[in-house]
Design a protein around this nucleic acid. Structure first.
Lengths: 193, 193
DNA sequence: CAGTTTTGTGAGTGAACATTCACATACTTA
DNA sequence: TAAGTATGTGAATGTTCACTCACAAAACTG
């Protein structure tokens, strides 16, 4: 799956619309207007609307997978790994707020099987990066074992999602990274032994 | 704001469609079909689609406010209050899964000012019930004070939301209450002193 | 610079949408 | 039972939607 320059531009514009107006707001008219050309030009780059959404989700999935793999490779301490992962996410969304839709991709669920598959893939990737870190932390006696790793991951993921939601609902009014780090600190305080 | 029988039926049908297909899926055609009458009959009961959504959100807000107030009034222990609040929520959504849209109401955000106001009201009500309990728990030395009450509430709310999301995504395949109580137990373990 | 491919245009298509309206039936109550 | 009101119907409205097509300009390639 190679994505051409123009396709990436379209995906970015689509993300922007999705993040600010939701699925119902993503129309070919709006998307073409944001790109500065007519609606019909969209179909030179994608088969249709569904393909645009799926390609966007697949791109975000691959990108996140790469980023998160890279950002922990030289770190051993599980707590520092968690810090690195979330700082990486905060940085990414601060630089690319248009892709915040990735965090709330469930909102895109409709009747389309392939879109749903892409969404599940995104969630699986997030999980793939977090769970081993929690497990490692518990094994090393750094993270609480009174709660199952699954639950701790759930708590971290849920808090992260809500944090990003509040950021979007506030119209990006506060510093996600700063506030996010304070929140992560609170969570770590609670889950550390 | 009194809601008539027929209006409540329409609101329930609308919730059902919103929960399973999202905002884009809520069309007058589908809604009328679910009600067993023609589209035009909808306009005997509501001014339009927007009014249906707003009335639904206001109804859910008032209902939740009443429920949550009632369910803690004879309880003193903050931890038991939290338990009561969440068991009440689990019970409600188990009985009325069509109203799960209330938990993910942000998905309804569009250009409509009044819908956004109704959504913010819902979130404010949830907050109104939770925060005093956490504060009380911290004052009584039952809940950790190493993390601010705001953050603890954030963690609880975020975990609850993600739990409900997974329930919906699984097509209501597991027992929300049972699994939810296990999750709440894990959270309480972490936040109790 | 000739030929080919890539990328755009603008008008047009049918389907789905929310909403309206003249009309009809059912329910309530004096 | 007659009158009034609440609730429904079915056809029609204009709008917006995703998408197509014949055509044109621009960019690349030998």
């Amino acid at each position: 799956m190679e994505i051409k320059k123009r396709q990436l531009e379209i995906i970015e514009a689509a993300g922007e619309i999705l993040t600010e107006s939701g699925l119902a707001g993503l129309t070919t008219k709006k998307l073409a207007a944001k790109m500065g050309f007519g609606e019909s030009a969209l179909y030179r780059h994608f088969k249709g609307k569904e393909e645009i959404i799926i390609t966007m989700l697949q791109y975000l999935n691959a990108d996140m997978d790469k980023r998160l793999t890279a950002c922990v490779e030289n770190i051993n301490d599980p707590v520092k790994k968690l810090d690195a992962v979330f700082n990486n996410q905060f940085d990414f969304f601060q630089q690319h707020p248009q892709f915040l839709v990735a965090v709330f991709s469930e909102g895109l669920m409709e009747e389309s099987k392939s879109i749903n598959a892409a969404i599940l893939q995104l969630m699986a990737t997030k999980r793939k990066h977090l769970l081993p870190i929690i497990n490692q932390g518990q094994l090393q006696g750094i993270i609480e074992t009174t709660a199952p790793a699954e639950d701790i991951m759930h708590i971290i993921m849920g808090s992260f999602r809500l944090h990003m939601l509040q950021w979007r609902m506030s119209d990006f009014a506060f510093d996600v990274k700063k506030k996010g780090n304070k929140l992560m600190e609170s969570i770590l305080t609670l889950i550390k032994v």
